Computed example of a mutant assay.
Amino acid sequence: MARFKVGVQLRPQHCEMAQLRAAWKEADALGVDTIWNWDHFYPLFGDPDGTHFECWTVLGAMAADTSHAKFGALVTCNTYRNPELLADMARTVDQISGGRAILGVGSGWFQRDYTEYGYEFGTAPERLRALRDSLPRIKARLAKLNPSGADVPIMVGGGGEKVTLRLVAEYADLWNTFGPPENFKHKNAVLTEWCEKIGRDPAQIDRTVMIGTDEVDSVERYLEAGATHIILGSDAPFDLKPLARLLEHARS
Rank of each mutant, 00 (worst) to 15 (best):
E182I: 15
F178I: 08
E161R: 14
K197Q: 14
E215N: 12
I231V: 15
T177L: 00
V216Q: 08
V190L: 05
T57Y: 06
R132V: 08
D49M: 12
G108E: 00
R221I: 05
I230D: 04
T177Q: 04
G104L: 04
P125D: 00
E193D: 15
E120V: 12
K144E: 15
N183G: 14
Q95R: 11
I205Q: 01
F121R: 03
E196K: 14
L247N: 01
D28I: 12
S218Y: 11
Y80A: 03
R112W: 07
A227Q: 05
A172G: 04
G98N: 09
M210H: 08
T76G: 01
F4D: 01
A87S: 09
H229T: 14
S97A: 15
P147S: 06
A130T: 13
G233I: 07
A69R: 03
L223T: 12
R100Y: 07
A124V: 14
G31C: 07
G60I: 14
A189K: 15
T92Y: 12
A140D: 13
E215A: 14
E193A: 15
R132A: 15
R166L: 11
C195Y: 01
A244R: 15
S107K: 07
M210C: 13
E26F: 02
L174A: 08
F184T: 02
P48W: 12
I231G: 00
W38N: 06
H249G: 08
P180E: 10
D94C: 05
H40G: 02
S67P: 04
V58M: 11
